[in-house]
Design a binder for these strands. Sequence first.
DNA 1: TATTGTTATACTCTATAACTATA
DNA 2: TATAGTTATAGAGTATAACAATA
Lengths: 166, 166
Amino acid sequence: MPHKVPLMPKAGRPHPSVGFSLSQLGLATSRGFAELVGTLGLEPRQFAVLRAAAQSAGQPQQALAERLGIPASTMVGLLDGLEHAGLVHRRRAGTDRRVHTIELTERGAGVLHEAMALAEAREAQLCAGLSAAERRALLGLLARVAANLGIEPEQLPDRGEGHRAP
Amino acid sequence: MPHKVPLMPKAGRPHPSVGFSLSQLGLATSRGFAELVGTLGLEPRQFAVLRAAAQSAGQPQQALAERLGIPASTMVGLLDGLEHAGLVHRRRAGTDRRVHTIELTERGAGVLHEAMALAEAREAQLCAGLSAAERRALLGLLARVAANLGIEPEQLPDRGEGHRAP
DNA sequence: TATTGTTATACTCTATAACTATA
DNA sequence: TATAGTTATAGAGTATAACAATA
């Protein structure tokens, strides 16, 4: 959450606004998700790293960083944690001994699996009481708002660089 | 964190999830809002303070802090900025000379007005292409998700890092 | 000389706790 | 003694820049 944390108006309560609701819910969901994967000893970005590493094994650590929009120096610490927990493996590439390729350990794959299950359960909790059609409608409307903002569907939340992002 | 900035998965792209979409859009909207009011020299929480102060003049500074969920020590800096910009006025209460009551200056009211106009324009941009009925539907669905999370409609995003060390 | 990963530095933000002045 | 506001200190988190090994 983090978005740095964004705080928006309140009070007046003339009408609820989409912007305020999204800001409020976005913070709550990401915070809740962080807590959830925290029970597995992961922080959200480590979960993202596990997923990305699982998609194709043996990626250089810098490739992962770039793909997730995480600075290389930050990636070091994230991987240190994952490696120390035995979830991931750094190996020097034979072709270029400067690069470290990343692979999930068996245990790492297991934890990733658990984390995905938690995420699914969380999704179900968020959407409790919504019919399948309503959930689809919500996703569709959110996608249209995202399009208005120029956000591509796959794009990571991406912590802004220099700008203040509360 | 945006925030702790919460970062969520990506990649796999089996189906988009409500949780991920909200996290992504929430960060984008709050960041965009921060940039927007930034053009007026405000940060988001200062905008919130102006709104709250406008609702009823002469509130003690601590009342504002509590109402917005902002720590008293943080409120000091926010008000310092607002006062220095001539948007707000600290006055010692006659009844209890310890309390500082806060009032908007004429200029503060003007800036608040501008900021609200910006926020409205932003809302329109977010909802571009949505019919009135679709926007209502979106707000309704978001409210139901919020209810599932136990969030009250009025509640501020609330950065509360809450569970720190006692 | 350029590049991969690492470490070190500096900066931003925030909260906790000390401090003052009133009560 | 307790409270409103202020200031100071310390902690977490991050990005930028220097660094070592390899190319």
